[in-house]
């Protein structure tokens, strides 16, 4: 008795195309036919790029102060296409931060965080912070001057958190100062702990979307009679594929034209004249310079807390003043402040 391979598999994994279609056929609101509404898929796609290129880089990377810089140099200069993969990883990290921030702004300004989606906003906030931390730990792994001193400064910032700060710092560094154990800590955080956490949170994020549905959004001039939804598969998947390709082209061009280079090797005895974190920390860096240690850290913590709590604060405002546009104005003010602080930090040396 001959069986086709498909039947053989079907007998053992009883899932048919119908079920698969059912599972993936998230009804997608029509506004997602417009390309610029698809920002949520972008960080997810970049996350996959980071996982793939990150695994490849880890094949050669050796996390210890004696070997780290040399192994990055090996990847950059000797391994075939190593420079390209490293460039992809670096640029995808940068773009991922940008994509997460843009996605969050879209959610904010369209009020998509409101009931019943407050929980997903919290998950999204966690993902934002994790993205930043992954960027920070990854940058430290190169073990060049700026990454070494960035890590040192970063660890000492946690030190200024009252009461627990000193323990947090020593936990992060594996000692009182940057030492033999620090790099392997950063590596395991960057390459295992944080990405797995992020993957789990992304799954939760998507599940919540799937359960709640994507927020519907109607334009005033829209034809009410036309169907309000279209299918995820295959229509929206094709859109996402196109966005993925655009990202890939952009990434390879950036990785080739502005490749990831290597600064001087870390020297624990001499701090460079100008030290700057990656651009996405400019805001925090400037903020730290504006206020003294503990005050800066506490105020930053307060801001992050307010961001987490925003759906509930917003609900309270809307309950008392239903027609209030406060959220828009606060958002605009926040965005402008972030841009202003980033530009300020970028334009000065110290």
């Amino acid at each position: 008795m001959s069986l086709s391979p498909l039947t053989w598999i079907r007998e053992r994994v009883p899932v048919g195309p119908e079920q698969l279609r059912e599972l993936t056929n998230e009804p997608v609101p029509n506004h997602l036919k417009k390309w610029w509404w698809c920002l949520g898929g972008t960080p997810a796609y970049l996350f996959v790029v980071q996982i793939v290129t990150g695994i490849l880089l880890a094949f050669y990377y050796k996390p210890s102060p004696q070997t780290a810089y040399e192994s990055v140099r090996y990847i950059t200069e000797e391994a075939s296409f190593g420079w390209f993969l490293r460039g992809l990883h670096k640029w995808a990290a940068t773009m991922m931060v940008a994509a997460v921030v843009l996605h969050q702004m879209r959610i904010f300004f369209t009020g998509a965080y409101r009931k019943p989606r407050e929980l997903n906003w919290l998950v999204g906030m966690c993902l934002l912070l994790l993205t930043l931390i992954v960027g920070f730990t990854g940058y430290s792994l190169v073990y060049e001057q700026l990454s070494y001193w960035g890590a040192t400064v970063g660890a000492n910032i946690t030190d200024s958190v009252p009461v627990v700060g000193v323990y947090l710092k020593e936990l992060l560094l594996g000692g009182e100062v940057y030492n033999e154990n620090t790099l392997s800590r950063f590596f395991i955080l960057h390459a295992a702990v944080l990405p797995v956490t992020m993957a789990a949170l992304i799954a939760l994020h998507v599940t919540l979307i799937r359960l709640q549905g994507v927020t519907e959004f109607h334009f005033r001039d829209e034809d009410r009679k036309k169907p309000a939804f279209f299918n995820f598969f295959p229509d929206h998947l094709l859109t996402e594929l196109s966005i993925g390709l655009v990202l890939m082209v952009l990434l390879s061009v950036l990785a080739t034209v502005l490749p990831a280079e290597m600064g001087p090797k870390a020297d624990p005895l001499s701090t460079p004249e100008v030290i700057k974190p990656e651009w996405f920390f400019y805001v925090a860096f400037r903020w730290l310079k504006l206020f003294s240690g503990t005050l800066a850290v506490l105020s930053m913590g307060l801001i992050v807390f307010l961001m987490y709590a925003w759906p509930f604060i917003d609900a309270r405002i809307r309950r008392s003043r239903p027609e209030s546009e406060a959220s828009v104005w606060i958002g605009v003010a926040g965005a402008l402040a972030i841009i202003a602080l980033t530009v300020w930090e970028a334009s000065v040396a110290h």
């Binding site: 075939s80 296409f81 993969l85 890939m248």
Partner: peptide, 25 residues
């Protein structure tokens, strides 16, 4: 066209990755 294009481009990227993993000298 779509399948060929996706296969060729991502396939090439995969080949590069394989070349990267294979000892360079």
């Amino acid at each position: 066209g779509m399948i060929a294009g996706l296969g060729a481009s991502y396939g090439t990227a995969g080949l590069y990755a394989a070349r990267y993993l294979y000892p360079s000298k």
